[in-house]
Amino acid sequence: MENKVDYTDCPVTETIAMIGGRWKLIILHVLYGHTRRFGEIIVRIPSISRKVLTQQLRELEGDGLISRKEYKECPPRVEYTLTDFGNSLCPLLTSIKAWRNGVGLLSSRQD
């Protein structure tokens, strides 16, 4: 008999739902420590489409990880920045980068 565990209320599952996917962590990394306009983000992630970037930004905003500030100017200006909740992911981003750099060092070693 197999033991089945329900992970629907698991914090890891919830976190992956918020930051999972191909682009969300990259977008968060681009916003880490910066306020950026849409055009600045797309320049830093050239392989993402405008449609997907818009969708991902909306989802991140909906989850409270980023904030969107719209300025009533002509032409309109919109800026994105990490919220305090989004900034709480910065240690995770730093750890992922350090982990990758460590793995890169290990994989470049020759026995």
Rank of each mutant, 00 (worst) to 15 (best):
Lys4Gly: 11
Ser67His: 09
Val43Ser: 15
Val52Asn: 01
Lys69Pro: 00
Arg36His: 05
Cys90Gln: 14
Val12Ile: 15
Glu73Met: 14
Ala17Met: 05
Glu79His: 03
Glu40Asp: 03
Gly39Val: 10
Asp9Tyr: 07
Ser108Met: 11
Leu93Gln: 00
Ile19Gln: 03
Leu92Tyr: 03
His29Trp: 07
Arg22Gly: 05
Val43Gly: 10
Glu61Arg: 07
Asp63Arg: 06
Ile26His: 15
Asp84Ile: 06
Trp23Gly: 00
Leu25Cys: 08
Gln110Phe: 14
Val5Met: 13
Leu89Glu: 01
Cys90Asp: 14
Glu14Trp: 01
Arg44His: 09
Ile42Met: 03
Arg58His: 14
Gln55Tyr: 13
Ser108Thr: 03
Lys72His: 05
Arg68Trp: 00
Asp84Ser: 11
Leu65Val: 02
Glu73Cys: 10
Cys90Asn: 13
Leu53Tyr: 03
Cys74Phe: 11
Pro11Ile: 09
Val30Arg: 00
Lys69Trp: 06
Cys10Ser: 14
Val12Gly: 03
Pro91Ala: 05
Arg37Ala: 03
Asp111Arg: 14
Leu53Gln: 02
Leu31Arg: 02
Phe38Leu: 10
Glu61Asp: 11
His29Ile: 05
Ile48Arg: 03
Ile41Asn: 02
Phe38Tyr: 06
Val43Cys: 12
Ala17Lys: 09
Asp9Arg: 10
Ile26Asp: 15
Arg77Tyr: 02
Glu40Gly: 02
Phe85Lys: 08
Leu57Tyr: 01
Leu28Ala: 04
Glu73Ser: 15
Glu59Ser: 09
Glu61His: 12
Leu57Trp: 00
Glu2Gly: 07
Ile16His: 04
Ile48Tyr: 04
Ser49Tyr: 04
Tyr32Phe: 14
Glu2Tyr: 15
Arg77Gln: 09
Gly104Val: 00
Leu82Val: 03
Met18Leu: 08
Ile48Phe: 01
Arg44Met: 13
Ile16Gly: 05
Thr15Met: 12
Glu79Asn: 11
Asp63Phe: 12
Pro76Trp: 01
Asp9Ser: 14
Ser95Cys: 10
Arg58Thr: 15
Thr94Leu: 10
Leu25Gly: 14
Ser88Met: 04
Val5Pro: 04
Gly64Lys: 00
Thr54Arg: 05
Val52Ser: 03
Met1Val: 04
Arg37Ile: 08
Phe38Arg: 06
Gly21Tyr: 12
Val103Asn: 01
Cys10Ala: 11
Glu2His: 12
Gly39Ile: 11
Leu93Thr: 02
Ser95Trp: 11
Ile16Arg: 14
Ile66Gly: 04
Asp9Pro: 06
Asn87Asp: 08
Pro46His: 01
Lys24Pro: 04
Gly20Lys: 06
Ser49Phe: 04
Thr35Cys: 10
Trp23Tyr: 08
Glu61Lys: 02
